[in-house]
Amino acid sequence: MTGSRRREPLVAAAFLMPYLILFAVFVLTPVAYGFWISLHNWHILSAQAPFVGVKNYLGVVRDDRFWRSLMQTGYFVLLTVPAGNLLSLLMAVGLNQRIRGEAVYKVCFYMPVVTSVSVLAVTWRWLYARDIGILNYYLGVPVDWLNDPKLVMPSLAMMSIWWGAGGNMLIYLAALKAIPKEQLEAASLDGANSSQRFLKVSVPSITPAVLFCTVMSVIGASQVFGQSYILTGGGPADRSLTVSLYMYQMGFGQYQLGYACAVAYLLFFFVFAFSAIQFRLMARAFVGSS
């Protein structure tokens, strides 16, 4: 007995190793190597990549386009995360009512999540097209969804919410289903109506799910790329340029890999800091509610 217990860490390591090796080779090493690259003037075609220290970082923070892209990425997060999570939660609550054909709805709502962003973006380009788009056809007004500097981010956000809502919906639904029935029954016996049951019993129980979904949504939305890359290319006039797209333009449009890696690291820093703050705030709220 004691012998097998002593072997346990080894067994655990054996199970973890395949993932750890892949993680080390394909995530950790590139992440570290990316930092190394960010310290060099690294053009793909150049034979030498001279070490330049933090020059790339200084270049990025002095570039007005970086700050614009950062502000717009923040705007995108604000537009998508609260509204998207609310929609996911509403769909989950709806599906939790033991309705007929629940599985069909689930599949329908989840379908966009498994579809690639390029396919969706190309489809939405047709929906959004000013003169020949279906959206404007039914609205009857030529709305410039993707070409109006003020409308472009909300348009991208709308598509993104539709795209991603199904993923969080499943998590919320699982959390809702995990609430012990006894608690809800007890609440109704005590005279709580359905909205009171939802707010006082269900919501506190699913707080961990809300925390998880919000943080993941923020991280995901901060890296928004495919939507603006395919639908607008960052336009009109850079008004849908996001940090990831800016990084891509620097890295693969201009082949300035050092600079692009510096942008990547700055984005990483911002997302990391923001997630940490979020965890703190949400954890406090979580403790306060229980």
């Binding site: 992440v31 190597y33 998207g84 991603g164 939305a221 901060s222 890296q223 990084m247």
Partner: peptide
């Protein structure tokens, strides 16, 4: 909303590694 970004940061870094290899 898991799919929102697709992790381009990580992809860039991975591609950078592939270049090196």
């Amino acid at each position: 909303m898991e799919g929102l970004g697709g992790g381009p940061v990580r992809k860039t870094l991975a591609i950078a590694l592939i270049f090196a290899v």
